[in-house]
Amino acid sequence: MKRESIWRALAAMAATQLAAAAMAQTPPPKPLMLHDDPALALTNISHPGRPAPEGTAPPNPNMHSIEGRWWTSEFKPLLGPAPGVPPPLKPAAMAKLEQSVRNKNKGIPEADASTQCFPHGTPRVMESPYPLEIVETPGQVTILMETQHNIRRIYLQDHHNKMGESFLGDSIGHWEGDTLVVDTIGMNTRTFIDDEGSTHSNKQHVVERFRKIDGGSKLEVTNTIEDPDTLEHPYSYKTVYYWRPDMRTQEYVCEENNRNTVINGITTAK
């Protein structure tokens, strides 16, 4: 079945919420702000993902496997320790984020890696509101993402491959009980941590803890980021994905913008 674009669904949901708010004569939700300054309004958190529809194959009850197709339950433009809270950035990095948010609100999006069809970087790539498919094979966990056909390879070994810097970095993993712990280093500095423009250095270190919850119907990833150059201290946040075996990945050709288009500064479905 042809899948309706996620951005179209997002736009529809936002419109429904606004209409409901108008009917109830309550003002629309106050936008999140970086600081108390309308020029620093943040993009609101969206909820693109939905659980699998009725009749979908039940989740794999083996909690020691995270294999399958998943779709994020929440699109977070800012990846801080809580909703609407920025990462604990050092002053220089915070100034860059503020500038980025100001520019976005003036309709001048940052020319970052993703706008040039490069990979979004780790951890931002995991926030993509498009499906991902996890494949487990001996010695390797592979995450195939629809977004910009990114492929993350997590080698189940105890040492990094150290092949030089890359956008998605150098990931290794091991199982602790039913939790897959993924350790990533080696990211280049050409990406942001998040959509709003939190920056990182090439000393960024990301530890993700993947585990299935709710009988396998959800995948929870607890993400801890440390970066001695740009962060005051390490911080963590969680992302939850729905089990969606019914989703079939489409071809994403960023160079032709076949999956998105930008209307009034917001990425929307064609």
Partner: peptide
Amino acid sequence: QEEVCRAGALESEAPPPLAAKGKPG
């Protein structure tokens, strides 16, 4: 390797600085 195509060049081998593209604003 992580191969990132840009106009036929391998990004992973010779990354040109992003700033060269210019940032509006």
